[in-house]
Design a protein around this nucleic acid. Structure first.
Lengths: 215, 215
DNA sequence: ACCTGAACACCGTTCAAGT
DNA sequence: ACCTGAACACCGTTCAAGT
């Protein structure tokens, strides 16, 4: 258990640390090798290649989702919301977390666990005219889509590129029926609130219980 | 107007043709140069770099969305659904279209136009307790998330990798509360129907009119 | 104005050879 | 079993020079 000798788990951890410091686009096998204090070739003893590495990174993101307080024997809409919010939090915890997760098809434990939990909860609370699997899938896709946009904004913001893009978009926004100003407002504004609003929009009407009343 | 002399528009077209044949991951500036019958350096007279190219490609995807039959003076939920479905169709028309579009923040005309149209339609049909901007944003994020997953599946399927991943995931799916089998079923099954189901889930309860009845 | 040629500082992956 | 060293066939981007 000494710090000598690399393994898959540790390599994924180093990769996430690197991305956290430099962004996903900067992650290369060679730079990862430097960060891991090995030669590039050594990486391929722990990981099949760059695609396999990214899949393992995706599972590591979902592995941070704590589902221990979710009680499957008493499913509620609030637990569904909690579950989705934790997915989003997990992705936000890692720089470019959503892009890492999106479309990587990690077939590992953590990914399967969260997908299964969400569906099991929904099976109990979805209204009869809807399919729990459809709703679970919609919630996951909404969440991923939302956080991709969110982290793209965060990335542009940190480099100052965001301000340039907003300026470049203003002229069009005038003679078009609304332009992209909604996205600008949503991202600039309280993103937690906006995410929750979308979540509630999906669940309202698809669920057999009354949602938490305002106030 | 002869075929001599490259321009930005033509370059984006060539890039999409290349991606259509080889996939987004295979697109490099050097290979694009070959496809365009120029030297790599020449590309930088038409495009600021690879990121700018991808933004232009994203706008080209949205430019294929035909909104001419959408009548903003008589907004309906059906028109909202049509609008979203056309977004999805546009992304599906291009290989890796969703990944190209996702988080690229194309501030160009076509992107702004579709976002604005969707919001304008929703302004008229959303129930009072919801914000039209939130719903429009949720619909766009759901759609992007869905198609990313869809095209990732299509890519894995075409290389035969999909079958391997499903096999690798089966053992876990047994002792977990549902595993990822929902995603497997949804993607294997009629994807158009699944997409529509999610769309309707979002709109049910958030909209001030009755949705089309079954049958 | 647009393009070439050449250069610069990099990539992912493989594999014989070492320990 | 894990790692090095070296090689192979590539990258994105810049820029003086040509036309």
């Amino acid at each position: 258990m000494g710090t000598r000798g690399l393994n898959r788990e540790r390599l994924v951890e180093i990769a996430h640390d690197f991305v956290s410091a430099n962004g996903l686009d900067a992650l290369t096998m060679r730079r990862l090798a430097v960060a891991a204090h090995v030669t590039p070739g050594a990486l391929y003893k722990h990981v099949h290649g760059k695609r396999d590495l990214q899949r393992a990174m995706a599972d590591a993101v979902y592995a941070t989702v704590d589902l221990s307080d979710i009680d499957l024997s008493t499913p509620t809409v609030d637990q569904v919301i909690t579950c989705c919010a934790r997915m989003r939090e997990a992705m936000l915890r890692f720089r470019d977390g959503a892009r890492i997760v999106a479309g990587s098809y990690s077939p590992f434990a953590a990914t399967a666990n969260i997908a299964g939990t969400l569906r099991a909860l929904l099976q109990a609370v979805t209204a009869p005219q809807f399919d729990a699997g459809d709703i679970a899938y919609a919630l996951r896709n909404y969440t991923t889509g939302f956080v991709i946009e969110e982290q793209a904004y965060l990335a542009l913001k940190s480099t100052g590129e965001w301000e340039h893009l907003v300026e470049a978009l203003e002229p069009d926004a005038r003679d078009l029926p609304g332009g992209m100003s909604d996205a600008v407002v949503i991202l600039t504004d309280d993103r937690d609130k906006r995410y929750l609003a979308g979540l509630i929009a999906i669940l309202t009407g698809t669920v057999n219980t009354r949602l938490t009343e305002p106030g």
